[in-house]
Simulated assay, not measured.
Amino acid sequence: MHHPLTEPARHALYHRLAARNRIWIAHCNLPALLLPLYLSAWTTITLARAVRGGGMGQTLRGMREGWTSRRTQRRRPMSWRTVYQPTAAGRPPII
């Protein structure tokens, strides 16, 4: 595999793919009841970061792309037991 050479600073492709992939990963791995909580928390955090650091347009584009194409990803949500274990250890899967 060959990755194209990019600058280490955040770039447009990073903002778009990070937003898209976050939605895909949540859709694939979280139980349906946790999806709204997780996505609303990370949407707020991501948009706040985009306002401060730039990349708002690409972030919104990535969110739209992730949301519209999420059904193309295979869904295998974790069990509630798996959700409980990191939560009990102080690392809930929401944030």
Rank of each mutant, 00 (worst) to 15 (best):
I95C: 13
N21K: 02
A9C: 01
W24C: 01
L5P: 00
L17V: 10
A32K: 06
H15N: 04
T82W: 04
A18H: 13
V83H: 09
T87R: 12
R22K: 10
N21C: 03
T43M: 13
A18L: 07
M63F: 09
A41E: 05
L33S: 12
W42T: 08
L60R: 12
H27W: 14
L17M: 14
H3Y: 02
L39N: 09
W24E: 06
L37P: 00
L47E: 14
A50W: 01
H11N: 15
R91W: 10
R74D: 12
A89V: 00
M56C: 10
G90V: 08
R61D: 05
H11C: 05
Q85N: 04
Y38Q: 10
R20M: 10
T82R: 12
P8H: 13
T46W: 01
M78K: 08
A26M: 03
L30I: 00
G54R: 04
A32P: 00
R70S: 07
G62K: 03
A32F: 04
S40N: 08
Y14N: 03
R49S: 14
T59I: 01
M78Q: 13
H3E: 02
L34Q: 12
P77C: 04
Q58W: 08
W80R: 05
V51D: 11
I23L: 07
P93G: 03
T72R: 14
M1A: 12
A41R: 07
Y38H: 15
S79C: 03
A50M: 15
W67S: 04
S79G: 11
T46P: 00
R61K: 06
R61L: 09
M56V: 15
I95H: 09
I45K: 15
N29H: 05
P86S: 04
H27E: 05
G53D: 15
V83W: 09
S69Y: 10
G62S: 11
R74M: 14
W42F: 14
P92T: 07
R74W: 11
H3R: 05
T72F: 12
Y84Q: 09
G53L: 04
R20L: 10
P77V: 01
P8M: 06
R81G: 15
R16T: 01
G62I: 00
L47Y: 11
I94R: 06
A12K: 03
I45A: 14
G53W: 03
A12M: 01
R74K: 13
L35Y: 10
R74Q: 12
A18C: 03
G62M: 02
T43V: 10
L17Y: 11
Y84F: 07
I45F: 14
H2A: 09
P36G: 13
R22W: 05
A9M: 03
P4W: 04
Y14T: 00
V51R: 15
G66Q: 08
I25E: 10
L30W: 06
A18S: 11
L47T: 09
